[in-house]
Amino acid sequence: MRWRERWRAFSAGLHEFYVAPYRRTFARARRDEDDLFRMLVMSEMLGVPNPAAYYTAELLPVLYDSFHDWHRRMGLERSPLENYRCC
């Protein structure tokens, strides 16, 4: 039984060794796409005219949860938008 557990732990470690870089790459690609989408939705607030602003405004609350992570990732310790505070 002990050996079986060890084998399982080894197998899990090997799996992690292989999978971790992949997971990172895919997650990063996905995050980049999300960021692009965020820029589209928030373009009016950032001063870029957006003809679809009337519709995208509806999506602002959806993006609120991940906003804090985004501005920290962009190297801004506080929210850069005056009417969109988070911390």
């Binding site: 470690g13 992690e16 060794f17 990172r24 920290r72």
Partner: peptide, 19 residues
Amino acid sequence: ELEDGVDFVPTNKFVLWGH
């Protein structure tokens, strides 16, 4: 502190050593 599932992922030390 900054765990995001992308770059910041707590990793087992043996796996991390391997990488």
